[in-house]
């Protein structure tokens, strides 16, 4: 199952740029971009930091895509 996230939507809603987010969480901008595009699953530490920084519950930021499982 794939992990999907809502980071881009939440970030844009709060008016935070990728660079600002990357600077504050001390990761590269490319990593933020890869996470937002669901190409890279961040570590548990970074995921928790993201949830805390964006001030949203962890489970509403990340969730499992069950459509693949249902398709099978």
């Amino acid at each position: 199952m794939k992990v999907i996230n809502h980071i881009r939507e939440v970030r844009q809603r709060k008016g935070i740029t990728q660079i600002k987010l990357a600077e504050d969480l001390q990761v590269t901008r490319q990593t933020i971009n890869a996470i937002e595009k669901n190409k890279y699953n961040p570590s548990l530490e970074l995921s928790l930091k993201l949830a805390e920084y964006l001030d949203v519950p962890f489970t509403s930021l990340f969730y499992l895509d069950k459509s693949e499982e249902n398709a099978e």
Partner: peptide
């Protein structure tokens, strides 16, 4: 170009 972001992180 990319502000105060590190050049290396967990993904790298």
């Amino acid at each position: 170009k990319s502000g105060n972001t590190p050049s290396f992180d967990e993904r790298n």
